[in-house]
Design a protein around this nucleic acid. Structure first.
Lengths: 129, 129
DNA sequence: ACTATACTACGAGGAGCATCGTAGATCAAA
DNA sequence: TTTGATCTACGATGCTCCTCGTAGTATAGT
């Protein structure tokens, strides 16, 4: 069975973002990234990572004294989960509503709209039949 | 200043969905809708609504013995908040990624794609210049 | 060898969330 | 008027999340 990882919480998501952008990282490295935006104790980040490892959100290499952490799921995969989850919870499954919501909240420009259209085309190409 | 309402929690969102679809509702009516999908005590829903009123997520009319509740924000407004929030937290502000995430997670069909495109067109029409 | 530094493990505690039970008030029906 | 149903108010509990402090261990520098 595919190990089922839970939906990351807010704080966990922040850490995942660091891991996605940095790749394999030690606690210290993650901490430095996190604390730059929001001053936080080192052990807070450490504990988070330990909990996340327990949940299966991250994996770690303990072969060195400084353990090295990696996100267990890709950014894309997680984004799909979160978008799908929100879709069900708040949008009654209507993809169109979600898209519109995202667009209007961020005051998307014509340029971004074009980008979205382009992505739609690409996505459709990958569709069966 | 516009009263700033907090982001609704999962349980709160379920109740809001009921209020949005039913309109003005008593606790009993909300409870009936909620418990149909997930058996729940009457007082649980009542308490939720009371808390939500305190947070400003709903307003209530106490002129009758059975208080009548209304969502304080429209469905559209809330959806925009949630979509925008997720966008910032998980997608680094990239609307395109969010759209793709939602599409691929729900295995959107060609028909739905067409619908999304139509909405995009409409949205663009309302855009200034 | 000794001391300072860096690292992990882990327990504790505050805060919010979701749920429920009980108490007390109000109303309606017999 | 008494009884039963219906409603609100609210306290209590268990859970998760987040944060931090302390303890213990390994490493490195002098």
């Amino acid at each position: 069975m595919a190990a089922t990882v839970p939906k990351p919480t807010d704080a966990e998501l922040e850490i995942l973002c660091v891991l996605w952008s940095r790749g394999r990282s030690t606690v210290r490295e993650v901490h430095e990234a996190i604390t730059a935006r929001k001053p936080t104790q080192y052990t807070t980040v450490l504990k988070q990572l330990q909990v996340m490892a327990g949940k299966g959100l991250v994996r770690r290499d303990e072969s060195q004294r400084s353990h090295v952490y990696v996100a267990a799921r890709t950014r894309d995969w997680t984004q799909r989960q979160l978008a799908g989850d929100l879709l069900q919870r708040a949008f009654g499954g209507s993809t169109g509503s979600l898209v519109l919501g995202a667009l209007s909240e961020t005051k998307a420009t014509k340029r971004e709209l074009a980008e979205v259209r382009r992505l739609l085309d690409e996505y459709e190409k990958g569709l069966p039949q």
